[in-house]
C-alpha cells in the first residue's frame, strides 16, 4: 500500500516536471512583460510538430533534434512578438490587450496546425530504447528523469543569465520600467525580442519533450493552462516558484485522479486553484504589488 502511494508520488512528480517546463517559459514572459502569455501553448504545439520532423522524419539524434526544435521555437517566439505584441508595446496598450492577443495567437497557431496536419495523432520515436528503470517494484521512466533534469538545468541557466549577465541586468530593468530603462540607454525592444526568443526556445524544448512523452496533436499546447496554474501557485513571475508550483500541481493532480477519477479532475483542479488564490493570491514565493493612488 505504501508502495502504491510512493509510485503515485513519483508519477505526480514526473507529471509536475512536464508542467514545470511549460511554467518556466510562461513565468519568464510574465516576469518581464507582466502579462500571461497564452500564446506559449501555440508555440509548444508548433514545436511538437517540428520536433516530430527532426527526430522521426529526419531521424536526427535526440540532442540535435532538441536543439533544432529550440531554434525553431526561438524564431517562432520572435515572430510571435512581432505579430501579437509589438504594436501594443509601441502604443502602451492596457494589459488586457496583451492577454487577448496572446490567447488569439495561441488559438491561431493551433488551428493552422489543424489545417495542415488534421487532427490525426503523430508520435515521436522514443528517445530511449529501454525507457523503464525498475527499483524493486517501483517504476521510473527515463524520460521523466530527463525532463526533470533538463528543467533544473534550464532554470539554473536562466537564473545565471538573469542575475549574472549584462543582458540579464537589462532584462530586469525593462521588467521594472520599460520607459525608464530606455532613458538609461537600454534598447527595450531588443531586450523584449531576446526575451521572446528565449521563451520561444523553452517552448520548443517543452514541445518536443511533450511530443515524445505523449502523442502529438494540434491542441497539445493547451497544456499551457497547467503551466499557468503552476506559475500562479508559485507566484507569478517567479521562476523557482513556477517549478515548485508545477510539481505541487502534478502531485495533487495524480492524487485526485486516483481518488475521484480522471474525468472529474479538471473540476477538482478548478476548486483547488480557486481556494489557493483566495488564501494566498501572491503565490508561494511572490509578493504582491499594490496599486498606488
Amino acid at each position: 500500500m505504501v508502495l502504491f502511494y510512493v509510485q503515485q508520488l513519483i508519477n505526480g512528480v514526473s507529471r509536475g516536471a512536464v508542467y514545470a517546463l511549460i511554467a518556466v517559459g510562461f513565468a519568464l514572459i510574465f516576469s518581464v512583460l507582466k502579462f500571461s502569455n497564452f500564446a506559449h501553448g501555440g508555440l509548444i504545439s508548433v514545436a511538437a510538430y517540428a520536433g516530430y520532423y527532426f527526430s522521426t522524419k529526419f531521424d536526427f539524434p535526440p540532442v540535435i533534434a532538441i536543439l533544432c526544435t529550440a531554434l525553431i521555437g526561438a524564431v517562432m517566439g520572435i515572430i510571435l512578438n512581432y505579430i501579437a505584441f509589438y504594436n501594443l508595446q509601441r502604443r502602451n496598450s492596457p494589459n488586457i490587450f496583451y492577454f487577448v492577443s496572446s490567447i488569439t495567437c495561441g488559438i491561431l497557431f493551433m488551428n493552422i496546425l489543424t489545417l495542415m496536419f488534421g487532427t490525426t495523432f503523430y508520435a515521436i520515436k522514443p528517445f530511449f530504447k529501454n525507457n523503464i528503470i525498475k527499483i524493486g517494484n517501483l517504476i521510473i521512466l527515463k524520460m521523466d528523469i530527463m525532463i526533470l533534469a533538463l528543467t533544473f538545468v534550464l532554470l539554473a541557466a536562466l537564473m545565471l543569465l538573469i542575475n549574472r549577465t549584462k543582458m540579464g541586468l537589462a532584462l530586469r530593468m525593462v521588467s521594472i520600467d520599460k520607459d525608464t530603462a530606455m532613458l538609461m540607454g537600454v534598447n527595450s525592444s531588443v531586450v523584449i525580442t531576446v526575451t521572446f526568443s528565449i521563451a520561444g526556445a523553452l517552448a520548443g524544448i517543452s514541445g518536443i519533450l511533450l511530443g515524445a512523452n505523449f502523442t502529438i496533436d494540434p491542441f497539445l499546447g493547451n497544456m499551457v493552462v497547467k503551466g499557468f496554474i503552476a506559475s500562479v501557485i508559485g507566484g507569478l513571475g517567479s521562476l523557482p516558484g513556477a517549478i515548485i508550483g508545477a510539481i505541487l500541481l502534478g502531485v495533487m493532480e495524480v492524487i485526485f485522479t486516483v481518488l475521484v477519477g480522471d474525468i472529474l479532475s479538471p473540476a477538482i483542479i478548478f476548486v483547488m486553484t480557486l481556494i489557493f488564490l483566495l488564501i494566498r493570491p501572491q503565490g508561494i514565493s511572490g509578493h504582491f504589488v499594490t496599486e498606488k493612488a
Binding site: 499557468f228 478548478f270 480557486l274
Partner: peptide, 15 residues
C-alpha cells in the same frame, strides 16, 4: 485580480 478571473473563467468552462 482581473487576469486571475479570466483564468478561472477558462477553468470553469473545463470544469
Amino acid at each position: 485580480r482581473k487576469d486571475y478571473f479570466s483564468l478561472m473563467s477558462l477553468c470553469l468552462g473545463e470544469a
